[in-house]
C-alpha cells in the first residue's frame, strides 16, 4: 500500500463535477449536467497517462480540474499526497509552478500581442524566477529543447509569424519552462496535420525522458494514445470505464465501450513493403 502511494503523483478520489445550468425565471427543470461522476484515478510518477474519450465524455473537464482551472463539486484531488482542492495564495502559486497545461488550439492559446519570448517567459516572470538575463537564456534554452532552433530566430517573433506546429511547440515550451512535475496535454495535436502531430509526440516523449515529467495526455485518438502512453484510461460519459497498460487496453479490452472504440478505429491494412 505504501509503495503504491509513494509512486503515484496524482490521486483522484470520488471526484464529481457538476455544472448547474443558469437559472432562468421560468425554467422548471433544475437538472444538473454531470461532467464527471465519482472518478477515481491515480497517475504514477514519470508515466504518460492517456485519457481517451469522445467529445462530451468529460475528459477535458478532468484535465482542467487537475490544473485547478476548475474546482470539483465533490471528491479530493491530491498531488504527491497533499490535497490541492483547498490551496490558496502562496501555496496555490507554488502549486502552479509544478503543474502546467498544453491547450488544444495553438491558434487560440498564444496571446497575439506577446512575442514568443514574452509568452515563454511569462511563467518565469509570474513566479519571479531569475533576472532578465537569466530568464532570457532560459527561454532560449527552452526554445532549443522544443526544436525551435536556433532560438534567437524565434525569440522576438510573434505568434502570427509561426505555423500551427511551431505555435504548439511554443505552447509546449511555455508549459515546460518552469520544469513542472506534471503536465496536462489536452488534445495537443488534434488541430494539426499527421506529419506535424507525430513530431510533437516525439517531442513529448523526449521531454519526459529529459525532465522525468509526468504527462496526462488527453485525446480522442486511441492510436495516438497507444503510441505515446504507458497506461490508458478510457472515459465515457463522465466515468472512467477501464484503466490498464496501453498494450492490454488495445490487445485485451474488457469493457464493451473500449471494445467498440477499438472496432471503429479506421483501420488501414495495406501491407507495405
Amino acid at each position: 500500500m505504501n509503495m503504491v502511494k509513494n509512486s503515484s503523483l496524482i490521486q483522484m478520489k470520488g471526484v464529481t463535477k457538476e455544472y448547474i445550468p443558469r437559472k432562468w425565471f421560468f425554467s422548471k427543470d433544475q437538472s444538473r449536467v454531470v461532467a464527471l461522476n465519482e472518478v477515481d484515478l491515480s497517475i504514477k510518477k514519470g508515466e504518460i497517462f492517456g485519457l481517451v474519450g469522445q467529445s462530451g465524455s468529460g475528459k477535458t473537464t478532468l484535465g482542467r480540474l487537475l490544473v485547478r482551472l476548475e474546482e470539483p463539486t465533490s471528491g479530493s484531488i491530491s498531488l504527491k499526497g497533499s490535497l490541492i482542492n483547498t490551496l490558496k495564495g502562496p501555496s496555490l502559486k507554488d502549486f502552479r509552478s509544478k503543474v502546467q497545461m498544453i491547450f488544444q488550439d495553438p491558434y487560440q492559446s498564444l496571446n497575439p500581442h506577446l512575442s514568443i519570448a514574452q509568452t515563454i517567459g511569462e511563467p518565469l516572470v509570474v513566479q519571479g524566477i531569475g533576472n532578465t538575463r537569466q530568464r532570457r537564456s532560459k527561454v532560449l534554452h527552452t526554445l532549443e529543447i522544443v526544436g525551435l532552433s536556433p532560438g534567437q530566430d524565434f525569440y522576438d517573433r510573434y505568434p502570427h509569424q509561426l505555423s500551427g506546429g511551431q505555435r504548439q511547440r511554443v505552447a509546449i515550451a511555455r508549459a515546460i519552462v518552469l520544469e513542472p512535475e506534471f503536465i496536462v496535454a489536452d488534445e495537443p495535436t488534434s488541430m494539426l496535420d499527421a506529419t506535424i502531430a507525430i513530431q510533437l509526440f516525439t517531442l513529448l516523449l523526449q521531454i519526459r525522458e529529459t525532465f522525468n515529467m509526468t504527462i496526462l495526455f488527453i485525446t480522442h485518438n486511441l492510436a495516438a494514445a497507444n503510441y505515446l502512453c504507458d497506461r490508458i484510461g478510457v472515459i465515457h460519459e463522465g466515468c472512467i470505464v477501464e484503466v490498464n497498460t496501453a498494450k492490454k487496453i488495445i490487445g485485451d479490452p474488457v469493457h464493451p465501450y473500449t471494445k467498440k472504440l477499438i472496432r471503429v478505429q479506421p483501420c488501414f491494412d495495406f501491407n507495405r513493403g
Binding site: 482551472l69 496555490l92 496571446n111 511563467p123
Partner: peptide, 14 residues
C-alpha cells in the same frame, strides 16, 4: 475563456 488567458492563469499570474 480563451486558452491563452487560462494558460497564464495556470502559470500563476495574478
Amino acid at each position: 475563456h480563451r486558452p491563452f488567458i487560462e494558460a497564464s492563469k495556470v502559470a500563476g499570474a495574478s
